[in-house]
């Protein structure tokens, strides 16, 4: 069976065909081994360029130099939501298609998403103090992102609560999907409620409200951090596949030892 799975190439022309081909963890690890160094280098190069441009860009006429916090705060906030959306897609992969790597993707993304969410909150707080005069307010945007951070912590705890990953996969997938309701709430909180946080200024129907001299460095930084996220996620998924292999092999050897003792 193992030979058949590695040799056969399930028509890799369609998206679903390609996803099926990746269901083989060995093939996934080979792909990750090839991608990780290049993605990592690309991320660092784009980030270097983006941050250079960010510090070369003019200061904001009202905010002064604190506008430079934007170039990391906005990508972190975007990644906090992107990572959760990716986990929700993976949750569907577990529940609907029983894709063997979907739970690996969900579990290994959670700590990375939690880190970026924490950074979005921290950098926002540090930006808020000089501009708003306060580190924190319980407005709808800040509160909903804080809830997102708690969701991440809950998913991390759940995916690591059981020794057998197969048993926590379903529960984690359901929890992740239920929590996805928070993502549109975060996005539209600034429109639905009266928040201290400003409304969207990049992705809006009438176009960005940021001057191009500040917008371009921001977009380049966002792309760079996204590549960094993808690199870290591939590495974490690879480590998780290895962890599950070790568990399976230990179980196998324990069973063999039991049989020998009988």
């Amino acid at each position: 069976m193992g030979a058949g799975m590695t040799d056969a190439n399930p028509q890799a022309t369609t998206l679903s065909g390609r996803l099926t081909a990746l269901a083989n963890p060995t093939r996934f690890i080979a792909l990750a081994d090839r991608l990780v160094p290049w993605l990592g280098l690309l991320a660092l190069a784009i980030l270097a360029a983006g941050l250079y441009l960010a510090f070369a860009a003019p200061e904001d006429y009202q905010q002064g130099s604190t506008v430079r916090i934007m170039y990391i705060h906005v990508p972190f906030a975007w990644l906090a939501m992107f990572c959760y959306s990716l986990m929700a897609a993976a949750a569907l992969g577990t529940l609907v298609w029983k894709h063997p790597l979907a739970d690996v993707a969900l579990k290994s993304a959670a700590p990375i998403g939690a880190a970026f969410t924490a950074l979005a909150l921290l950098t926002g707080s540090i930006w808020g103090k000089p501009m708003w005069g306060t580190w924190w307010v319980w407005d709808a945007r800040l509160t909903s992102v804080f809830v997102l951070f708690l969701m991440y912590l809950g998913i991390i705890a759940l995916t690591r609560a059981m020794d057998d990953p197969g048993r926590s996969a379903r529960a984690a997938a359901i929890l992740t999907l239920v929590g996805f309701i928070n993502i549109p709430i975060i996005k539209f909180s600034v429109d639905w409620w009266n928040t201290l946080h400003q409304p969207a200024s990049v992705f809006r129907l009438d176009g960005p409200t940021i001057h191009p001299s500040l917008l371009w460095p921001l977009l380049i930084c966002a792309v760079g951090f996204t590549f960094l996220f993808l690199t870290l996620h591939l590495m974490a998924m690879r480590a998780e596949i290895w962890r599950r292999r070790v568990i399976a092999m230990r179980r196998l050897s324990a069973r063999a030892a039991e049989r020998a003792a009988r």
Binding site: S65, T66, I72, L119, W127, L232
Partner: peptide, 22 residues
Amino acid sequence: MTHAAYVFAAYGVSALVIAALG
């Protein structure tokens, strides 16, 4: 604190957290 100190703090804490994650 000056504005520069806030910017430095934001970048510093971000570098620390991302390095620890990596």
